[in-house]
């Protein structure tokens, strides 16, 4: 067993568990995730689950979904530094997908009042859940990532319907942005901030 501290609480975890798994096992639900889903491989690409890890007197941010627990480390899942980083990440995501209900709710929860980045609606946050779902659970591999850098996209090869696609719809089912549109009263690019579903979690009882 590995001993560590999460948000001031002494906890034990099995060797090989990630910080996210451990936190959730102990009922600590202050770590939001987007690209992580049980049953799929971990991609660690959205970085929303970053937490502050203090080890040997040094503090740094790391994605909790892939960070294996280590003896003696201290983890802060909701410190000021963590929230600040998550806010920027949510703002970045919203700038590329302003109508997503998931993201609008996250923005409300994190008290984001203003979208400071230039909005370019792409309708996709490239979390890759659909790609992994298609390949790992549906055993199809009909969609994938193409291009790189700012041009990265999810599509079928050559942008034509793939022979291996069975139109099962699993990609749509798992997508955190394309199905649920935010219906809050707002202009395109505005922040909703009004939904009763969005429970504000900020400011959180801070331990830092």
């Amino acid at each position: 067993m590995v001993n560590l501290i999460i948000d001031g609480q002494h906890v034990q975890a099995e060797e090989g568990w990630t910080i996210l798994e451990t936190a959730r096992y102990y009922g600590i639900d202050t770590i939001p995730t987007l690209c992580y889903r049980e049953g799929l491989t971990t991609d660690s690409s959205c970085r929303l689950c970053v937490v502050e890890i203090i080890s040997r007197g040094r503090s740094r941010l790391s994605a909790s979904c892939s960070y294996p627990v280590q003896e003696g480390i201290e983890v802060r899942t909701n410190s000021r530094r963590v929230r600040q980083a998550r806010k920027i990440i949510i703002e970045l995501l919203l700038a590329s997908c302003p109508n997503s209900k998931t993201l609008q709710c996250l923005a409300s929860q994190y008290g984001i009042k203003e979208l400071r980045f230039k909005v370019e609606d792409r309708g996709c946050i490239l979390c890759g859940l659909c790609v992994r779902m298609c390949k790992e659970q549906m055993q199809a591999g009909a969609i994938g990532f193409f291009n790189r850098g700012v041009d990265r996209r999810v599509a079928m090869p050559f942008h034509v319907r793939s022979d291996v696609c069975r139109e099962c719809g699993a990609c749509l089912y798992i997508c955190p942005v394309c199905e649920l549109q935010c219906r809050g009263p707002r202009e395109p690019g505005d922040l909703c901030n009004g939904c009763f579903e969005a429970i504000r979690i900020d400011p959180f009882p801070s331990r830092d």
Partner: peptide, 12 residues
């Protein structure tokens, strides 16, 4: 190799 992988590499 799946077509998705080849297309991914060729465009990357």
């Amino acid at each position: 190799i799946s077509l998705v992988d080849i297309y991914g590499v060729a465009t990357f």
